[in-house]
Design a protein around this nucleic acid. Structure first.
Ligand code: DCP
Ligand code: SF4
Length: 1094
DNA sequence: TAATGGTAGGGGAGGAAAGTACCGTCGTAT
DNA sequence: TAGTGATACGACGGTACATTCCTCCCCTAC
């Protein structure tokens, strides 16, 4: 049965010394980090100490909370003993790194319905029973798969001490609290109430057709009620829990305990000892698959050939496991354990067992959720391994794939697959990075280069098959590649402090950490709102409101006084403007006074916003949203303090990302109220916030202008040259940075006093010089201290955008450097001319000409066979395609479509970024006909349309920069001598006569066309023959050196000085250079040969 | 089905519509 | 094969192309 192939050699481990002989060690540092792990090591968790449930509290850090439904086990007291009952299940880790599963019983799902006032006093306990029976008649009871029945409504209770969170309520209202047998009945009953289908005493008038708190995920409901936040430490007091006997075990964790009363599960505050993160086990893995015929592998037919794993314990410096499972033999790999198998089933099975043995809390990798896991699961099904896909902590529960799409304005649309792995967190680094960073490319290669400074070779899948087919050494080559792919995500996770940052976010917002990968901002706000509402006895309505769809008015952008400023410009900026507005003016659902109620309150208790909406003041009742915001802002403040303390630039960037994430969470509280397709939209709040903002920026501008002018004894009249939402850019007129800073600080404090606490205008920075191009488009040299500038700060322009090519970005960046730092405009101009000339003469790297654009919508139009044939004219697209399909042709969309026809599996899909270059095409061709995959261009030697890059990429950006500086920038930049000499690729010199085309050779000396194609030099150059030959020869050695240098770089990257380079990474500049260098080399070699033959 | 923070704004590209230059045809005056 | 006046000129319609305006789309600043 076991088809494991015994490792070769003695003991299976290659020594480090042997390895050094084999390849250069430094280049494979990732293989020998920490101890030698090639041998068998103990990978199990530390043994779980005996626990005395009667004497000891049970404490662990909870990482995942879900639920299942079952007939409660016999040892649990449950009033509906034979019924299908929901049971909360928490997974976590003790501080000793022992895994825990906790079953929480008797937490019953519920929701509320408001009783119309006239009926409220009349309800008796008998009525409640009767209502229960009415509801049970209306609902459709469901039986579990095991055949256990369940009751829709278990009980109905009268609740008097609550009120709706919507509008300021002086009085409590009467609600019924409906307890259900299973979470899903909540949804069912909600629909019944919403449709007005529930009537009692012969009329539906008793119940409002709005329900309360009926749309929370059940597990989150439990967490909220028990004040448990994500990734927090949990305590169950001694005597309140029960350890399961072996025979009662359901989970493969080290401890499995039950709590009879859900109230006994207690969340410990996240400070001191319990602010720490438990020693979580992190598994990073990567699979390789092979496919025939150069096609991208498909799980149905193509085998998994290798799986590499790295296991690390959070907080440890060294990995615990580094291994690879291979199909077929594999030569030993230093520092890593190699497990080889004869057939795929055995390999997969061994890997699955390995995963369970390691018992990781966190599973990471790159794109594991959308590729590796689905592939493994589908592959196991294709191999009929029906009892295979059990990766979670629940025995007998197998992972399944569910397709899903996530769509939000900020993150775009993306298709995802949901995989259930109970008790472990799927920490896919691709998802993390997609959400937290805006990059031009999200390939592992590109991301590693960006954050870790190390390239990663990219082996084309057709080559992977070859490596697999050949021998144990080529398979080792592949295995090393595979291990690196498992290693890099682990490194990224550590270096970007993902676990730490996301743990903090989960704790602050209260959601389980998994929500941070799969859900949006809304659920975070909702989680906080529900918690605060519960504290204040308020209930949250679930109201499918009619949505107008109209946008409300947002912020003001002050009309910029465009130009190039050499005097310092100070920037004043409100700190957390929208949150501080909401706090200052007490804006909340629970403080809003509807128009018809305004007359009932004292004027001084009310706040009327510039939008005309009315709220009660803080004295009367403090809103919930301000309370939530205080916490978020406090968390952000802590993060910023830590940021201020660090000096390491990378660390700073990471901490900046953290505080930014908290800022967005705070701003999303405002966004939540304005989200018309959200849980609880309330436009009076959101439009009041923006209206305050509008008034405030105008006022700020006026205060500054009115004070800082000659009439008040200042040396100059100040000028507000620009402002956006919460900031004003002031030119005080003073010539030095120092004076500008002094005035800026003073002005900020001066203006602040006009506003309500905690609104605060801050002086932040000075720009000098400052180039203001347009609304939301500017660049300047930024100063925060008078003696030395900090950096160039660019907003909105090409250097910070991702939809142009690297060439544009770099050129613009260099120009800004010269213009703003050196203040040498003519140098910048000359530089541009040179660069344009380089471009036209093919001296720019192809990698710099790659443009990327995101694919925001679906491209394929559901290839239904019936719809395929459509005759004649179809002017407008079918109405059904209206939602989420493209209506305009675009370069990247059309290319994606073409690529899809070439190979379905590798083509970009929704949410992906498409990389393309523009190639030459017939005159008058549209852009979308000229875009092409850079890899395809290289493989087929297609010509680049350099002119396009001049006209459509670099021209306007440069003109926008230079126009404020020079008068006739266009003439200077795009018409000089430097635009004349245009590189003509070989192909273009053939006359366009199809098969009669003849390549005309040119003289090597003077480039004139030769009369005789076998000649090398023209007659005039004959005399210089020797000199020309030597020159060529020298050129050749330059090319050779160039190529060799690049080759070495690639060898470094792939970690071997002895093996061929296999990489074809679309994301690596070296790759493009290497291909080009090779081409140069070959061409030149051919010429030299001609020379010699001649 | 369930779930999805907000608005303002620049700028590139495609495409429809309106403009125009050019050309050939046709009717008509001479 | 039969029947034919030649020329200039403006109106008219079709076509190819440039221009303008609008919309879509991406991505950014707040
Ligand atoms: N993602 C964002 C960014 C900003 N804003 C709104 C709310 C902010 O209060 C206002 C100003 O944005 P800033 O970028 O200036 O951020 P803040 O003022 O909130 O924070 P800071 O203290 O960094 O200025 O714009 C928003 O709604 N969503
Ligand atoms: S091209 Fe060379 S340097 Fe770049 S990723 Fe590939 S192997 Fe590494």
């Amino acid at each position: 049965m076991e088809s494991r192939i015994a490792p070769k050699g003695t003991g299976g481990a290659t020594s480090i010394d042997e390895f050094i002989e084999d390849v250069d060690v430094e280049d494979k540092a990732f293989l020998i980090e920490g101890r030698d792990l090639s041998g068998k090591t103990n990978i199990r968790r530390p043994p779980a100490p005996q626990v005395n449930a009667k004497e000891e509290d049970f404490i662990f850090m909870q990482i995942d909370t879900d639920y299942y439904s079952q007939v409660a086990p016999g040892f649990i007291k449950n009033e509906n003993a034979q019924h299908d009952t929901p049971i909360i299940r928490m997974f976590g880790i003790t501080k000793n790194s022992n895994s825990v599963a906790l079953h929480v019983h008797n937490f019953t799902p519920y929701f509320y319905v408001k009783i119309n006032t006239q009926y409220a006093p009349t309800l008796t306990p008998e009525d409640l029973l009767a209502i229960r029976d009415v509801l049970n008649k209306l609902a459709t009871p469901q039986t579990s798969l095991e055949g256990a029945p369940s009751i829709p409504v278990k009980a109905v209770e009268l609740v008097h001490e609550k009120a709706s969170v919507m509008h300021y309520q002086q009085d409590k209202a009467t609600f019924i609290k409906i307890y259900t047998g299973l979470p899903r009945y909540v949804n069912q009953l909600r629909t019944l109430f919403e449709n007005g289908s529930v009537s009692y005493r012969g009329s539906a008038g008793m119940f409002e057709n709005v329900t309360y708190e009926s749309n929370l995920p059940y597990a989150l409901r439990f967490m909220i009620d028990n004040e448990i936040v994500g990734m927090s430490w949990i305590r169950v007091k001694a005597g309140r829990y029960r350890l399961r006997e072996r025979s009662e075990r359901n989970c493969n964790t080290q401890y499995e305990i039950d709590v009879q009363d859900f109230n006994d599960v207690e969340c410990l505050p996240c400070d001191g000892e319990y602010s720490k993160i438990a020693p979580l086990r992190i598994l990073s893995f990567d699979i390789e698959c092979s496919a025939d015929k150069g096609k991208f592998p498909v799980a149905q037919t193509d085998p998994i050939i290798q799986i590499a794993n790295i296991v690390k314990v959070h907080g440890d410096t060294e990995p615990l496991v580094r291994n690879v499972f291979t199909l077929g033999t594999c030569a030993p790999i230093v520092g890593s354990q190699v497990n080889s198998y004869r057939n795929e089933q055995d390999m997969l099975q061994a890997w699955r067992d390995f995963v369970l043995e390691v018992d990781p809390d966190i599973i990471t990798g790159y794109n594991i959720v959308n590729f590796d896991f689905p592939y493994i699961i589908n592959r196991s099904l294709a191999l009929h391994m029906n009892k295979f896909a059990m990766f979670g902590r629940v025995n007998g529960t197998y992972s399944k794939i569910k397709n899903n799409t996530f769509s939000s304005k900020a993150l775009g649309t993306r298709e995802t697959k949901d995989i259930n792995i109970e008790g472990r967190v799927q920490f896919d680094m691709l998802q993390v990075i997609l959400r937290e960073h805006k990059l031009r490319s999200y390939s592992l290669n590109s991301v590693s280069a960006h954050f870790l400074g190390e390239q990663k070779e990219d082996v084309h899948h057709s080559i992977i098959s070859e490596l697999q087919a050949k021998n144990e050494f080529t398979r080792r080559r592949l295995a090393i590649y595979c291990i690196k792919d498992a290693y890099l995500p682990m490194r990224l996770l550590e270096k970007l402090m993902c676990l730490f940052n996301l743990t903090e976010m989960a704790r602050v917002t209260g959601v389980p950490i998994s929500y941070l990968f799969t859900r949006g901002q809304q659920i975070k706000v909702a989680s906080q709102l529900y918690r605060k509402a519960a504290e204040h006895d308020l209930l949250i309505p679930v109201d499918k409101q009619h949505i107008s769809g109209d946008k409300y008015e947002g912020a003001v952008v002050i009309e910029p006084t465009r130009g190039y400023y050499t005097d310092p410009v100070a920037t004043l900026d409100f700190a957390s403007l929208y949150p501080s507005i909401m706090m200052a003016h007490n804006l909340c659902y629970s403080t809003l006074v509807p128009p018809h109620k305004v007359k009932f309150y004292k004027q001084e208790d009310l706040i009327k916003t510039p939008n005309g909406d009315v709220f009660v003041s803080q004295k009367v009742k403090k809103g919930l949203l301000p309370l939530i915001l205080e916490e978020l802002i406090a968390a952000r403040k802590r993060a910023r303090q830590e940021l201020a303390k660090t000096t390491d630039p990378f660390q700073k960037a990471v901490l900046d990302g953290r505080q930014l994430a908290l800022k967005i969470s705070a701003n999303s509280v405002y966004g939540f109220t304005g989200a018309q397709v959200g849980q609880l939209p309330c436009l009076p709040i959101s439009s009041s916030v923006t209206s305050y903002g509008r008034v405030m920026i105008e006022a700020t501008k006026e205060y500054v202008l009115k004070k800082y002018n000659k009439a008040n004894g200042y040396q100059f009249d100040s000028q507000v040259i620009y402002g956006d939402t919460d900031s004003v850019m002031v030119k005080f007129g003073v010539p030095t940075i120092e004076e500008a800073m002094k005035l800026g600080k003073e002005a900020a404090d001066y203006v602040t006093q006009y506003f309500v606490q905690p609104i605060k205008l801050e002086f932040e920075k000075v720009y000098c010089p400052y180039l203001l191009m347009n609304k939301k488009r500017y660049a300047g040299l930024l100063w925060t201290k008078p003696d030395k500038w900090d950096k160039i700060d660019a907003k909105g322009i090409e250097t910070v955008r991702r939809d142009n090519c690297g060439f544009v970005k770099e050129t613009v960046q260099s120009c800004l450097n010269m213009l703003l730092i050196d203040r040498d405009a003519s140098k910048a101009l000359d530089y541009c001319k040179g660069v344009i000339s380089d471009l036209l003469q093919n001296r720019i790297d192809l990698s710099l000409l790659v443009i990327t654009k995101g694919l925001g919508k679906k491209t394929e139009s559901a290839p239904k066979p019936g719809e395929a044939a459509e005759g004649g004219d179809q002017k407008k697209p079918p109405a059904a395609a209206a939602a989420g399909n493209y209506h305009a042709k675009q370069a990247h969309v059309e290319l994606a479509e073409r690529m899809r026809k070439r190979d379905e599996a590798t083509a970009p899909t929704v949410g992906d970024r498409v990389a393309y270059v523009m190639i030459k095409a017939a005159k008058g061709s549209k852009g979308y006909e000229k875009s092409e995959d850079p890899l395809y261009v290289l493989q087929n030697g297609l010509p680049i349309d350099y002119q396009f890059y001049v006209e459509h990429q670099i021209k306007q950006p440069l003109l926008r920069i230079f126009e404020p500086v020079f008068s006739n920038a266009e003439e200077k930049l795009f018409h000089g001598e430097h635009t004349r000499n245009i590189f003509v690729p070989k192909m273009a010199t053939t006359s366009g006569l199809g098969k009669f085309a003849v390549v005309k050779k040119t003289c090597l000396g003077c480039k004139n066309v030769l009369a005789n194609n076998t000649d090398v030099l023209c007659e005039r150059c004959q005399t210089k023959k020797k000199a020309i030959y030597i020159e060529r020869k020298q050129e050749m050695s330059v090319y050779e050196k160039n190529y060799a240098d690049l080759w070495v770089q690639c060898q470094r990257c792939q970690g071997s000085l002895h093996e061929d380079i296999l990489c074809s990474s679309r994301d690596c500049p070296i790759f493009y250079r290497r291909v080009k260098a090779k081409k140069n080399l070959e061409e030149n070699r051919e010429i030299l040969e001609r020379f010699l033959d001649w």
